[in-house]
Structure formats: structure tokens, C-alpha cells
Computed example of a mutant assay.
Amino acid sequence: MKNPLQISRQAFASAAQTGSALTIGNFDGVHLGHQQLLSHVVQTASSKGLVPSVMTFVPHPREYFALREQRPELAPTRVSTLRDKVRALSCCGIRHIHIRRFDQAFAQQTPEQFIEDILVRQLAVKWLYVGQDFRFGSKRRGDIALLREAGARFGFEVETLRDVLDSSGIRYSSSELRHALAYADIERAGEFLGHPYQISGHVVHGRKLGRTIGFPTLNVRVMPRCALRSGIYVVRVNGLTDEPLAGIASLGVRPTVEEDGQVLLEVHILDKNVAAYGKLITISFLHAVRDEEKFPDLQTLTDAIRHDADVARNYFAVHGL
């Protein structure tokens, strides 16, 4: 039987008993490059009798420094929620996820403190897998040489990972994935992920405007600075019935009917009514239809939604669910 997933924000008792095989990263959007390196972590952990583990950060370190310096435009957009990240890491075979809050105290610790307090004492690292350019600790003073030196002293191995390339020789990276999502290139994003881009969340109450114009929607809040371009998408919805459901979704600020600028994901299930409030659903984005628009009146908006729904029906008639 597979060991249960454990999520920690401090020490990890099981790791202290058996030791961990650890990799460190943000893993925002667990793409095929991530999946390959995580597979290596899982295989190595199995061969050495260790716990396959990941340390990840909230928020992204680049986001922390951008906001601290009052330069929010430098913060990376977010590919996935923490829930979706945890689920993706678990699906890759990771059994311990150590979520570290990236704050001033963490940023200011010395490289030696990071090694001794976190890697050795808290996570009982016996094997560490990081990029060749991995830097850590205050002012990024820690490097691979320091890790290898500490490993010899504290009893852990250090292995460095190489870039993973796609069939065109392009390195798999979260930056490339964000670029595809920013341009609504859903097909390219799917190639990077190995599956359609997804967002999960609980269905919340909205203004219920959709039902008054004949298109009731499921409303899901999305993470701040969502990487996906605002627009209309053909989607597949899981979590409401035993089978996936066909839908059309709008991601954006709803400029025709709202002025608060809050991004919301609204999903209309095609030709079916389902009870959904409070349920956790997963929306898979299959095809980009158009950008978000502001319409002059509600009737023009309704006509556009009707056309979008027909586009989605035609998509599913060709491709199926």
C-alpha cells in the first residue's frame, strides 16, 4: 500500500525516522520537466529507502521580493493554486510536501542556517536534488559547492539536475508555460503539462445574472494574478457527476456587468442542470474561443454567450469529452 501524503509547514516526524530524498522548487504548474525530475526523486527514494519529498514556497520568492520593493509588475503570474500544486505533486508520487512561507525571516537566514536547521534537523535530508545554478540563503550566498561540503559533514548526497527539453529542444520551464497561458495558447500549455490546463475550486454564489438570461453559471474564485489570459474557453468539468460534463467558461472581470475588477471564473454547463454550490470542481481548458469583451447592453452579451455555447457544442461534436 502506498504511503499516505503528508503535508507539513515545520518538522516532519516520519522523515526524521527514515530520512528524505528531497528536491526544492516552486513547481508552479507541474509541467513535463517537473514530472521527469520528480520521477527521478521517487525512484531514488525507493532505491534508498527514503521518503520522496518536495520543499516548495508560499509565496513565490520573486513575488515576495517584488511586493516588498513595491514593484508588483515584477511578480510572476500564478499558474496553479496551492491545492492544485499539491495534487499534482502527489500524483507524481511525492509523499511529503514541505510548504515553507517565504518571508523576511526566511529570506534573511544564512546558508548555513538553512542547511543545518531546515535540511538536516527538520527534513532529515539524505539525498538532495537541485538545479546546477541553485542558490539559497541571505543574498543568495549558498551554492552547490557549499551543499556538497555540508553533505560530507552531515551525511547527505547532492545530485544536480539537468534541463529537460521538449521535442523542439526548448527547455520545459514555468516561464514558457506562463507565456503560453498569457497568449491563451491552450494547446501549447497542454503540451507542456502533458494534460489540459486545469483550475480547481469550490463553487460559490454569484449574482445569479446568468440564470436570468438563460445561461446559469457555476462561479469559482481564481488565484490572484492568474496566468491564464482572460477570455472565453471551451471546458470540461469534473466533480459534479460521475462523468465529466461539457461546458463553456468565461475567465475575467465581467466588464459588461461589473466594475469592481475582481477576476472570476464562470462556467456554464451545456444542456444540463446540476446541483453545484459548495462542491469542489476541476475545470479543464480545451480550446480558446475569444478574448473577454465589454458589450453595450445585456442583449448583445446574451447573443454572444449563445454563439459561444454553439462553438462549444461544435467542438465537442468533433472531439468528444
Rank of each mutant, 00 (worst) to 15 (best):
K2S: 15
N3Y: 15
P4C: 03
L5E: 04
S8K: 15
F12I: 15
A15F: 08
A15P: 10
A16L: 15
S20C: 07
L22M: 10
G25M: 03
S39G: 13
H40I: 14
V41K: 03
V42G: 05
T56F: 03
H60W: 02
H60L: 05
H60V: 07
H60Y: 07
P61N: 05
V79W: 00
R83K: 15
D103W: 03
A105R: 13
A107C: 12
T110N: 02
E112F: 12
E116N: 14
D117E: 06
V120M: 03
K126L: 09
K126I: 07
W127P: 10
Y129N: 13
Y129F: 11
F134S: 02
F136P: 00
R141M: 14
D143V: 02
E149C: 09
F156V: 01
F156G: 02
E157V: 11
T160H: 00
L161N: 03
L161G: 08
R162D: 09
Y172P: 04
S174N: 02
S175Y: 09
S175V: 09
E176S: 14
D185K: 03
L193P: 00
S200W: 07
S200V: 08
V204H: 08
H205V: 13
H205Y: 13
R207A: 13
L209A: 12
G214I: 04
T217E: 08
L218C: 07
A227V: 10
S230Q: 15
G231C: 05
I232H: 03
V237R: 00
N238H: 15
L245I: 04
L245Q: 01
L251P: 09
T256A: 01
E258M: 11
D260M: 11
L265Q: 02
L270V: 04
D271Y: 10
V274T: 02
V274Q: 04
A275L: 13
K279C: 11
L286S: 05
A288L: 13
V289Y: 01
E293I: 12
K294L: 14
F295M: 08
T300S: 04
T302A: 11
I305F: 01
V311W: 10
A312M: 01
N314T: 14
V318F: 08
L321N: 06
